[in-house]
C-alpha cells in the first residue's frame, strides 16, 4: 500500500511537468491549428540557455532568459514560417514544424556534445517529506508551479480579452477576424506561451533527480504526446489531466514491473501509448476533445 501511494504521488508530480508541456501543445493547436513537433527542441533550447547562463547571471535571471529565449524562438517559428502557409492542411504544417525541430535539435545537441549540463537549481538534491512520503523538493516545486500556471492560464482564458480572442479564433478564424480580432497577434501570443511553458517544463525535467541537460532531452516532449491526445487536442483541461494520467501510468508500470512481467519487461515507455489507444477506442476525440459533429 505504502509503495502504491509513493508511486502514485511520484507519478502525479512527474505528470504535473508533462501537463505544462502538454498545455503548450494545446494552446498552439487551439490558436493556430498546428501540431507543433518543434516543442521538444524549444524545450531543449530553454533548458540549454538556463544551464549555460546560470553561472554568470545567477539562477533566477537565467530562468528568465531561458523562458524568454524559448518564447522568442517559438514566436519566430510561427511568424517566419507557419504564417506563410497558414491555410495549408494539418499534415503539411505538422511536417513543417518537424523540419524546424530537426534543425534546432541537431544544432543544440552538437553544442552540448557529451556534456551533461547542470541546470544550477538552488534546491539541488533536497528532499521534502510529506506524510511519510519522501519526494524530491524540485518535484514538489514543479507541482506547485504547474498548479499556479494552470490556474492562471484558466483564469486568463476565461476572463481576459486574450482568452476571448483566442477562443473565438479557435471557433472560427474568419468570423473572429471580421470581428476585429487580430489573428496574428493571437497566434503570436499562443506560440510565446507554448515556448515559455516548454522552457519551464524543461527546467523541471532536467533538475534533480534527472542528471541535467543532455542532447536527448528534447525527446522527452514526445512523452507528452499521449497526454495531449488522450486529454483531447483542443482541451487545456484535458491536457492537464492527460499529463497527470501519463505521469502516474508510466511510474506505476515501472514500479510494478515484476508483477506485470508477463506483458514483457520495460513497459514504462510503452504503457502511455497503450493507454492512449484504449482511450481513443472509447472516445475518438480524447476525454475532453470537441467531438466533430456532422450535420447534414
Amino acid at each position: 500500500m505504502n509503495q502504491f501511494v509513493t508511486l502514485f504521488v511520484g507519478g502525479l508530480f512527474l505528470g504535473a511537468i508533462y501537463s505544462l508541456v502538454a498545455l503548450g501543445f494545446v494552446t498552439v493547436f487551439k490558436a493556430t491549428h498546428v501540431i507543433n513537433f518543434a516543442q521538444g527542441s524549444v524545450l531543449l533550447l530553454g533548458a540549454y540557455v538556463i544551464a549555460r547562463a546560470h553561472e554568470s547571471v545567477g539562477f533566477a535571471l537565467a530562468v528568465a532568459l531561458g523562458v524568454l529565449a524559448a518564447a522568442v524562438a517559438s514566436v519566430l517559428i510561427d511568424a517566419v514560417l507557419i504564417r506563410r502557409i497558414r491555410r495549408a492542411d494539418l499534415g503539411t504544417l505538422a511536417i513543417l514544424t518537424l523540419g524546424v525541430d530537426i534543425l534546432l535539435a541537431t544544432e543544440l545537441s552538437r553544442r552540448i556534445g557529451t556534456d551533461v549540463l547542470n541546470i544550477g537549481a538552488p534546491w539541488g538534491s533536497d528532499v521534502t517529506e510529506v506524510a511519510g512520503i519522501r519526494v524530491a523538493t524540485s518535484r514538489v516545486l514543479a507541482g506547485g508551479v504547474a498548479a499556479v500556471l494552470v490556474a492562471g492560464f484558466w483564469l486568463a482564458f476565461k476572463f481576459t480579452d486574450f482568452g476571448i480572442a483566442m477562443r473565438s479564433a479557435a471557433e472560427d478564424g474568419e468570423v473572429a477576424s471580421l470581428m476585429g480580432i487580430r489573428l496574428n497577434r493571437v497566434a503570436a501570443t499562443a506560440w510565446a506561451l507554448a515556448g515559455a511553458l516548454a522552457a519551464i517544463g524543461g527546467l523541471f525535467l532536467t533538475s534533480f533527480p534527472a542528471a541535467g541537460v543532455t542532447g536527448s532531452v528534447g525527446l522527452l516532449a514526445l512523452a507528452t504526446i499521449p497526454a495531449v491526445v488522450l486529454g483531447g487536442f483542443d482541451s487545456p483541461g484535458g491536457a492537464v489531466l492527460g499529463g497527470l494520467i501519463i505521469g502516474v501510468v508510466s511510474v506505476l508500470t515501472a514500479g510494478y514491473q515484476e508483477e506485470l512481467s508477463f506483458l514483457g519487461r520495460g513497459l514504462g515507455g510503452v504503457a502511455p501509448f497503450a493507454v492512449m489507444l484504449l482511450v481513443l477506442l472509447v472516445r475518438p476525440s480524447g476525454l475532453f476533445g470537441t467531438r466533430e459533429v456532422t450535420r447534414v
Partner: peptide
C-alpha cells in the same frame, strides 16, 4: 534509453 525518471524503479 527514453526512460529518464527512475521513480518507479527505485520504489520497486
Amino acid at each position: 534509453p527514453a526512460d529518464q525518471d527512475m521513480t518507479g524503479q527505485v520504489s520497486a
